[in-house]
Structures are given as structure tokens and as C-alpha cells.
């Protein structure tokens, strides 16, 4: 972990995304500007269809913006790359590689991480508490374990930004809470920038430094809500008055958006 907090600046400049569909050109994300500080934990929150995943995929380099550009530490994003780690919604571990080899994959193909890929992988296995499962195949692990490996695999490249697309959506709520807590711990250790996509308001408030609430038709940013809850955040955080008020502020925006979308579709 060299010079951790100076990298990870993400600038989204005049980015819009539109698709060609059979019914004509569809605007998925209208012109969006957003700056994310190095080390900041930002949640993109909104209902499905609001373009939050599309925006994340633009930063990842999987989707090319129709207009505008994205800079990570001043360098324009032109495609996927190891400086931006990605954690997917579904389990995307390679079923044909052992847990250790999944984590070692990034360092092996990029040479990042300094040490030998196996040593890097072992370090991360220890960090996520799965050293004993190093030689197992992903399908032998529970969903929560697999997603921990997914996070470790993304981090093993020592990226400056970690992109997470509803990573805990498929987990049961008990596991989800544990994963949220351990993600915060990892984030603190690495001082890495995190962009986290979710539709779960509580999850966003618990995790984020700042919540970007997005609305649909077309996808756009409707609110930019700072979350100034003290860290580290524990179980008592979610019962505090400030948690509730931030949560309510988010819900207000989301409700207004849903109503608007509903009327738009009805009319």
C-alpha cells in the first residue's frame, strides 16, 4: 500500500449515455457531472433504470459515454483496466480456478502488487479470513464467502478505485450486514476510493461518505447528500437520530422520483 490516499480522484465530466433501441434513441443517463475525492466512499442510490449501473460501467470502461469523458487521476478512461477494481453483482469468480488462483489472477496478468502473485493472494486470503479455503473451488464456498473473494480479487491489483455493482444484493440480510461491516474495515485499511451502486437506502447510509441519489427516465442525479455520521460505524450507528434523518432525506427523493416515473408512464 504505497501512497494510498493521493490517488483515486474520479471526475465525471458532462457524461451522457444513450442507446439505440428499436423504438429509437434511448437516453440512459443525461449529462452528469460528478467529482469524487481520493479515498471517498460514494454510493449511487436509486431505483432500477436510473442509470446508476450504467454510470458505474462507464467508470469501469465497459460502457463508452456518448458524450463527455471520465478521468481517473487525470487520465481519461478508454476501457477496462487494473487501476479500477470491479466487484460484480453476480458471482463472477472463475469456477475453474481455486480461490487462491482467483485472487492471484490480477497480479499474475498485470504484475501489480510487487510481491509474487501467490504471496499477494495469501495476504488477501488472510485479510478476508479464508486462508483455509485457498485450494477450494469457488462453488464449494457460500455466497458471502464468494463475494469476499470477489472483493479480494479486485483489491489484489491494488487499484486506486474500487467499483461495486450491488455486490451484496444476492446475499441474505444477516450476511449482508456482516459484509458491509467488513467492507468498511477493508476500505479504512486501504484508503481506497469506492463507488458503490445500490438500491438499498439503509446500505447506502451505513456505508457512504456521500450519497448520489439518482432518478429514472432519463437517468440523472437528483440529489447529492453528504453522510456525516461518525466512523467507525457500528450497530449503534443505524439507530442514531442522524442516521434516520439522512435515511428519510434519501427516501423523500426516491419517493418523489417513483411518483414522477409512475405518472410519466401512466400519462
Amino acid at each position: 500500500m504505497t501512497t494510498s490516499v493521493v490517488t483515486g480522484q474520479v471526475d465525471i465530466k458532462d457524461v451522457s449515455v444513450s442507446y439505440d433501441t428499436r423504438s429509437g434513441r434511448q437516453l440512459a443517463v443525461t449529462t452528469t457531472n460528478l467529482s469524487i475525492r481520493p479515498g471517498e466512499f460514494v454510493c449511487l442510490l436509486g431505483p432500477s433504470g436510473c442509470g446508476k449501473s450504467t454510470l458505474l460501467n462507464c467508470v469501469a470502461g465497459f460502457v463508452t459515454p456518448t458524450t463527455g469523458r471520465i478521468l481517473v487521476d487525470g487520465v481519461e478512461v478508454l476501457g477496462p483496466g487494473p487501476d479500477r477494481g470491479m466487484v460484480f453483482q453476480q458471482y463472477s469468480l472463475f469456477p475453474w480456478k481455486t480461490v487462491r488462483e482467483n485472487i492471484a489472477f490480477g497480479p499474475r496478468v498485470t504484475g501489480r502488487g510487487g510481491d509474487s502473485p501467490t504471496i499477494v493472494a495469501n495476504t488477501f486470503l488472510g485479510m478476508i479470513g479464508l486462508s483455509k479455503f485457498a485450494d477450494h473451488y469457488p462453488r464449494e464456498l457460500s455466497g458471502g464467502m464468494q463475494q469476499r473473494v470477489g472483493i479480494a480479487r479486485a483489491l489484489a491489483n491494488y487499484p486506486s478505485v474500487l467499483l461495486m455493482d450491488e455486490p451484496f444484493g444476492a446475499l441474505d440480510s444477516q450476511t449482508r450486514h456482516m459484509m458491509q461491516a467488513s467492507l468498511l474495515q477493508i476500505w479504512r485499511e486501504f484508503g481506497i476510493t469506492v463507488i458503490f451502486v445500490t438500491h438499498d437506502v439503509d446500505e447506502a447510509v451505513f456505508l457512504a461518505d456521500r450519497i448520489i441519489v439518482m432518478g429514472a427516465s432519463p437517468g440523472r442525479v437528483v440529489a447529492n447528500i453528504p453522510v456525516d455520521l461518525p466512523r467507525p460505524r457500528g450497530d449503534d450507528c443505524v439507530t442514531s437520530a442522524s442516521f434516520t434523518s439522512i435515511r428519510n432525506a434519501c427516501l423523500r427523493h426516491i419517493k418523489a422520483e417513483s411518483r414522477r416515473a409512475f405518472e410519466l408512464n401512466a400519462g
Binding site: A60, M86, F105
Partner: peptide, 12 residues
């Protein structure tokens, strides 16, 4: 998703 994951990890 496997191809995307590999690309995001920097694979050629």
C-alpha cells in the same frame, strides 16, 4: 461476466 471480470483485472 467472466470475460468482463478478466478485462477489469487487466487481462490481455
Amino acid at each position: 461476466i467472466y470475460v468482463r471480470a478478466a478485462k477489469a483485472l487487466g487481462a490481455s
